[in-house]
Write a protein that binds this DNA or RNA. Structure first.
Length: 107
DNA sequence: CGGGTGACTTTAC
DNA sequence: CGTAAAGCCACCC
């Protein structure tokens, strides 16, 4: 039995949501996962970002965890790159996390 | 088909 | 603040 939605759609959905994030806004893995249909599968979102080979130009830096922490910054060439990208968009930081309450955006 | 893995989240201690 | 555990789903071998 094949699943009705999965595979290509999963990646496509992640890309679509990330690409839709407005300038100067951020979203969470959970929000993307929920929009995709699997609210509990936030891991899949992060996994998709790191596994994607087709849309490396995607603004992944606008995707943060529920606390607003840049968990993905570790996987960037430079750990500071992700933060500076967000700061350059006008996003305010609190310690090592973005003001998720203020800049959170959801599809 | 099963086991391992993971850029997450929540609850619990 | 830290670790632990469970839930979750798709990919890779």
């Amino acid at each position: 039995m094949k699943r009705i939605v999965s595979n290509d759609n999963f990646f496509a959905r992640v890309y679509a949501v990330v690409a839709r994030i407005p300038f100067g806004r951020v979203t969470t893995y959970g929000a993307i996962a929920e929009y995709i249909g699997s609210k509990s599968s936030a891991r899949m979102v992060g996994w998709a970002l790191n596994s994607d080979k087709t849309n490396l130009d995607m603004p992944y830096h606008r995707v943060v965890n529920r606390n607003g922490e840049l968990t993905g910054s570790k996987y960037y060439p430079n750990p500071n790159m992700m933060r500076e990208l967000l700061e350059s968009e006008g996003v305010e930081f609190i310690e090592n996390a973005v003001d998720i309450k203020k800049y959170f955006w959801k599809p």
